[in-house]
Design a protein around this nucleic acid. Structure first.
Lengths: 231, 231
DNA sequence: GTAATAGTGTCTCTCAGACACTATCGA
DNA sequence: TCGATAGTGTCTGAGAGACACTATTAC
């Protein structure tokens, strides 16, 4: 059988991009302009363009750049779903990624009056918008991956600005996990990991000023040997 | 732009199936019968058949069943690689899985004189056969995933027969990790996890007989909160 | 002074590593 | 008896959770 005669599935990429703003976790959704599912919300994604994209991760990054206006600092592949029923147009597959970006760094193209793109708050594992296709399942799986990694990595650092206080870092962890963490335990864990250095400056906040830190290695993720309590 | 005009990539599935026999970890490889890469070894895989396969995981399981003769008890998706250069026939992608099976359960179709399929030993992260495409990279990534999961899960149980001694279980862990584990620590960890029950029988071996155990829940994987020493 | 947040001291508990000791088999 | 493997007792140390205490700011 020659390769030309194989019926090929439709191939897409979808990314769940997370950011944290104030006291909440947000993700970016887009309104579809065409059928199927016209006017419904979806994740950031699209078909692979064999002419434009050198690799599948390029597709993810290109779509993200188009929607957020910046290069996303962290992108991780989560899963690929493919079956006969998820798209009414036929057998289709999608590779799902999740991305993290500091809300300080995101140039909110989407918030500049664009009606077809918006950041939506994640409350109790869900968002108010109904998502088309199986995108709610994908969002849920990406959230699970993020939450489980938060228990044993320093991934949330990608959600912080370049300089931050230890309390701000802890707050990000707490927002993702949806629960509070003991301050002393958190600080001991982070300081022992040797990933932070003091900037020398303090953050003034009206109360006692806090030391500012930055990551010693900007794109390094530390893996701890023990989980934080996940129960 | 209509959906029919999008140029679609080639889509394949490849699986690294592991088994442990005697004192070594093995994986199944296949010799290609056609160009490109005719007569070179590859992983177990093939193109998605949009008519036969309901889902992408079905493809993986179907290909495995064809080659091993049995339903594989554990299959996990690892990654999807897609780019313009990995296949000389054009932009192609593959979703990689790894599978685990007890050497007792595998009906070695491949060993019954088939010259195009064989189990090959993994020594130092590698096999003697050179693999076509980027399959060595895929093998390496699946091995990494397996090794890292062994440090905090009971996944290796899928490599054991239904009834086994705790020493046999430990041996599997040691073979995968390539290092010895303290017996007392290992037993404490497994017994505290509450995943094993005594069968009541003993395994006679010429020396002191050992208690036989089985999994309380056959398809449950326990996740520990702490890693074994991975350093 | 108070309120609020930053920062530290320290006790307890869990569990992994290390390692020694005992038990039970065949020869 | 010995050699080999099975099974257990127990000490140590790392690090997480809990929680109390001190420090520094604005008011």
């Amino acid at each position: 059988m020659s390769i030309e005669h194989i019926k090929k599935p439709l191939v897409a990429v979808d990314t769940v991009i997370f950011t944290v703003k104030d006291n909440d976790l947000y993700t970016l959704v887009i309104k579809r302009l065409h059928e199927p599912f016209k006017d419904q919300w979806t994740l950031v994604g699209g078909f692979i363009d064999v002419d434009k994209d050198e690799s599948i991760e390029d597709t993810a990054k290109r779509k993200l750049a188009e929607k957020t206006g910046v290069l996303t600092p962290y992108v991780e592949q989560v899963e690929t779903i493919g079956n006969a029923t998820r798209d009414p147009r036929g057998w289709s597959m999608t590779t799902a990624y999740f991305a993290l970006i500091s809300s300080d760094n995101v140039e909110l193209k989407s918030m500049r009056g664009a009606v077809d793109t918006k950041w939506t708050k994640i409350v109790d594992n869900n968002i108010v918008e109904k998502l088309a296709y199986d995108h709610e399942q994908i969002l849920s799986n990406c959230l699970d991956r993020l939450r489980s990694k938060v228990l044993y990595t320093t991934l949330p650092a990608y959600l912080l600005p370049d300089e931050f206080t230890i309390s701000e870092m802890q707050k990000i962890y707490e927002i993702i996990l949806g629960k509070t963490i003991d301050r002393k335990s958190f600080q001991r864990r982070m300081f022992n990991a040797n990933i932070l250095e003091e900037t020398g400056d303090m953050k003034e906040s009206g109360r006692r000023p806090a030391k500012l830190y930055r990551l010693i290695e900007k794109n390094y993720t530390h893996y701890f040997l023990r989980n934080m309590e996940g129960a």
